[in-house]
Design a protein around this nucleic acid. Structure first.
Lengths: 210, 210
DNA sequence: GTCTATATACGGATAGAC
DNA sequence: GTCTATCCGTATATAGAC
C-alpha cells in the first residue's frame, strides 16, 4: 500500500487509517455499541480528528456499511451475470468466493444482516439497484433448466437461499457451532474449506430431478 | 392469561408486563440500541419501576437472553434426544419446529447470534451444558448410519450446519431475500412453509450414499 | 408498588490553540 | 491537520414522596 510510483500518498493517509479502524470496530460491535472514541483509539488519532474528516458517526458508518454491502453482494452479482459459465459452475464459484471471503472476514454477514434491520434505507438504496434475480444470466439459465427438466421445478429463491444458507450460515452461527462441536478456530476453518467442495455437490444432488 | 382459577394473578403482573416489553424491544433492537425508557414505555409503566423490579438493564437483559437461548436450543435438544424417532424423522421435526418458531418470532436467531458476540459468557453458561452432540441419541444414530453405509460419511457438524442453514438462514437474511425476490411478508411466509416439507427431502438427497 | 424529580456518567460533537 | 479542553444532550440508575 503506502505509496504509488508517483509521490502521492494513497493509503496510509489519516483518512484511510480512520476508515480502516472504523471498519474493524463497526464490524465487530455494530453501530449502536460502537464508540467513536474506540475508533479514534484504534486509528491512533484523536476523536476531534475523526469528526474533522467525517463530520459525524453516522456519516462514517454509512461509508463502512456501503462498502460492506458491496463486498457482500458483488460476488453474487458478478457470478450470476457471467455469460460464460453454466449453472453448476456458478454454484461452485459462489461457494468458493463466499467461503474465501468469510474466512478472511467472518464478521461481515452478521454485521450486514444486523445493521440492515436498523438502517432500512440501505435496503432500498444499495440492494434494490443490484436486481440480481429478474434480469440475470443466472435467472435465464435457471428457468431454462427447469423447462428442460434438468433440475427439479423450484422457486428460484429456494435455490438462492439454499446456496447462501449452506455457505454463509455457518459463519453467522460460528460461536454456537464451535461450542457444540468443540472446535477451535483452525478446525472450524478446515470444515469451511471442506464445504467449498461439498456444497456444490450437495446442491446438485438436491436439485436432481427424481 | 389474566388469572388462574385461583385468585392469584399470574401473567398480567407488572413484572411480566415488563419482561414482555423487554423481550420485544431487546429482540428488535439488540442490547446496545435498546433504551430502558423504550421498554418502560412499551410496558406502560415508569422507568423507575423497571429498576425496582430488575435492578439494572443488564440484569433484565440476562433474563431475556437466557430465555431466548433456551427457546432456540431446546428444539435441538429435545428432538435430538428422542429415543423413539429415527434420523430422518428427527430432521423433519427439527425443520418443522424451527420454521414454526421462526415464523412466529423471526427476529430470534439474529438477536441471539448478534448478542452472543458481545456477551460471550452466555456461550459457556448456557450452551455448553446442553452438550447436544457427543451424548445425544442423534449422535449415536448418525454414527451408526455412517457405519452401515446408509448415509455418506460426513462430519456430523456439516449435517447440523446444513439443516440449520437451510431452515434458519432465510429468516436471518429476510430483508435481503425479500428485496431480491420482490416478496411481501405473506409470500415470504409461504416460501418458508414450503421449506418445512422441502428441506427434509433435500437433506435426504444430499446424504444419500453414491 | 408506583410515581416525579434528580444525580451521575457517558458519548457525540465543537471551539479554539498550535 | 492535529491536538486539548469542553459543551451539551441523553441514558442509566436512585432518592424520596405518595
Amino acid at each position: 500500500m503506502a505509496k504509488t510510483t508517483s509521490n502521492k500518498t494513497i493509503d496510509n493517509s489519516t483518512e484511510e487509517k480512520i476508515k480502516a479502524a472504523a471498519q474493524k470496530v463497526f464490524h465487530q460491535k455494530g453501530y449502536a455499541a460502537t464508540r467513536t472514541r474506540d475508533i479514534a483509539l484504534e486509528a491512533g488519532i484523536n476523536l476531534a480528528l475523526l469528526n474533522y474528516y467525517f463530520r459525524s458517526k453516522q456519516k462514517l458508518f454509512n461509508l463502512i456499511m456501503e462498502a460492506a454491502l458491496i463486498k457482500f453482494m458483488m460476488s453474487l452479482k458478478m457470478v450470476f451475470n457471467d455469460e460464460k459459465t453454466d449453472l453448476q459452475t456458478k454454484v461452485e464459484r459462489i461457494c468458493a468466493r463466499y467461503i474465501d471471503l468469510l474466512i478472511k472476514e467472518p464478521e461481515l454477514p452478521l454485521f450486514i444482516m444486523n445493521e440492515l434491520r436498523h438502517h432500512p434505507q440501505f435496503i432500498a438504496d444499495k440492494i434494490e439497484p443490484l436486481d440480481i434475480l429478474s434480469n440475470s444470466v443466472f435467472a435465464t439459465q435457471f428457468k431454462e433448466a427447469v423447462k428442460k427438466g434438468s433440475i427439479r421445478p423450484t422457486h428460484m429463491l429456494h435455490f438462492i437461499m439454499n446456496i447462501l444458507g449452506l455457505a454463509v450460515f455457518p459463519f453467522i452461527a460460528q460461536p454456537i457451532l464451535k461450542n457444540i462441536g468443540k472446535l477451535n478456530e483452525n478446525q472450524f476453518k478446515k470444515l469451511m474449506m471442506e464445504r467449498k467442495k461439498l456444497i456444490p455437490q450437495w446442491v446438485k444432488l438436491m436439485m436432481n430431478p427424481t
